[in-house]
């Protein structure tokens, strides 16, 4: 079964970082100045997700068959 056909998800890679940064939802999305990361304004009545993936973590995948997890996969 395909995901909700009525929505489209777009991902934008922003960059690689280490240490603390400032996130600003303004300016040009994806603009990085030092430790300042601009995300663009949050549109009216909408949401956005900033995904932080530590180096070495594959990211994006989800294992539904975690043994012992009663909420996911194998009970």
């Amino acid at each position: 079964m395909s995901p909700n056909p009525n929505s489209r998800t777009r991902e934008t890679a922003i960059g690689q970082f280490s240490g603390a940064i400032t996130l600003q939802a303004d300016g040009t999305p994806g603009t990085v100045t030092g430790t300042l990361v601009q995300l663009g304004e949050v549109p009216a009545r909408s949401t956005m997700v900033l995904v932080l993936v530590p180096t070495g973590v594959a990211g994006g995948s989800l294992d539904f068959s975690i043994p012992g997890n009663p909420y996911l996969g194998v009970p």
Binding site: Q24, E41, L52
Partner: peptide
Amino acid sequence: NGEVGIILGNWTGAAATF
């Protein structure tokens, strides 16, 4: 899977900053 998600949501009727 180790990702951290920072989720922003704007409930108002106009674009907003954060």
